[in-house]
Design a protein around this nucleic acid. Sequence first.
RNA 1: CGGGCUGUAGCGCAGUGGCUAGCGCGCUUGGUUCGGGACCAAGAGGCCGGGGGUUCAAGUCCCCCCAGCCCGACCA
Length: 476
Amino acid sequence: MADRITPRNVNYSDWYIDIVIQAKLADYSPVKGCMVIRPRGYALWERIQSVLDGMFKATGHQNAYFPLLIPESFLQKEAEHVEGFAPELAVVTIGGGEPLEEPLVIRPTSETIIWSMYKKWIQSYRDLPLLINQWANVLRWEKRTRLFLRTTEFLWQEGHTAHATAEEAQEETLRMLNVYRTFAEEYLALPVLTGRKSESEKFAGAVATYAIEAMMQDRKALQAGTSHNLGQNFAKAFDVTFQDKNGNLSYVYATSWGVSTRLIGALIMAHSDDKGLVLPPKIAPTQVVVIPIYKTANKGEILDYSSRLVQTLKEEFTVEYDPDDSSSPGYKFAEWELLGVPVRVEVGPKDKEKNQVVLVRRDTGEKSYVALNEVKQRIRELLDAIQKNLYQRALEFRISHTRQIAQYTEFKTFFEEDGGFAESPWCGSADCEARVKEDTKATIRVLPFGNEERANGVCVVCGNPAKHLAIFAKSY
RNA sequence: CGGGCUGUAGCGCAGUGGCUAGCGCGCUUGGUUCGGGACCAAGAGGCCGGGGGUUCAAGUCCCCCCAGCCCGACCA
């Protein structure tokens, strides 16, 4: 008997960690707060990378790479930025055995080093827009870490763009937010809310931060991606100006946007169950696993049948094959369910006799018997159905745990009980936001787009006229 | 960084101050099984997290340290 996964309703945190460890996605490292991403976890990241990278290229971005180490003074050039990141910096003070003249910060994010370079590269409106992305690791000395959701070092991509006008920068900010939304919904089967962050939740150094927010199965919110309009803050800090057609000199407008390995955490917490990982087919590194079922007597003929099937399936799907005779079929079923492969194909003597296979879908456990000549077609349909079902299931879950609340007593009760997303009018003041956090631990996750008009009424906290309809939730 | 819990075989755990530290799972070898986590047999595997003390005697008691998890404050 393998290790059991703690059921979600017993302890959600333990369940999450059990999945990560037992599905072999990651492991704890010798260094506190860091994790080792194992092949099954890294394969997921590679899938995420390849899809997103395609989307970035399709929207005109190019990849580049900037150094890991940043002169400490660079961070200090943007006041809010340094204030936001100073507490979580790791600093290199010795190099080659000698104390460094200027300490080097291990990047927590790359705005400063990138904008120090943009100063060299941008002089004219002809140099704009400059649309660069980098895939990198960053390091933030977090007090409390959790596999994938928050680790000291994590992998991400960070886009850094430069524009001639505020309008273009805003357009880019929203374009990339939309790329994230599309990716989350279509590939991760993760329904997300999009909108702006409140002042207190925005990125250190940004004019405005936008985010995609998803609801996990414990009804907490997870910020799955952010897109920042940086205005001219970094251009001013690094003195990046350009001349327009009329010869006028002005500061460049900037955006930055990123998603990280946290997405893998989102994927797990949104879809998985007490049997293990559940992966959307469009992001699953392995879509199909083939398990032959045989006795010693018929081993040869069954393996022959199953391996020919595997060859056929590999023409269209990513396939793993598990013909090993050292564990029983039942064991393998459980094992592959734990690993999250969307479709399992069982082939045994009965199937060979009837020229069929058994298909089992991971999300519902439903079995079907399919003729050999229809297998590819049926798997295609199943993968599609699973993808849609996971999205739909997550969406319905979010909707059923989202409540419109106008009364503060009800609001507090909501978060004392099951919780979820509270959609409530808010006056816009940081004081009310802080009070909510104090009283309920919930924060404003996002100010959804197009909701200003719906914000008729009064702030759920203070009773003053509302300016926004905000989404409040406890979050990761 | 505060509070709590836990460190004993790869994993999960037992282990009144006393002799050679156990159990389950996993692992190795051989054999029988095989359509939902099979079974038999024989093996391998331990600086009892680290350091200091108390004691005739410490996995067990005391002190310090370290690590991990959970709960807070901080954050993607």
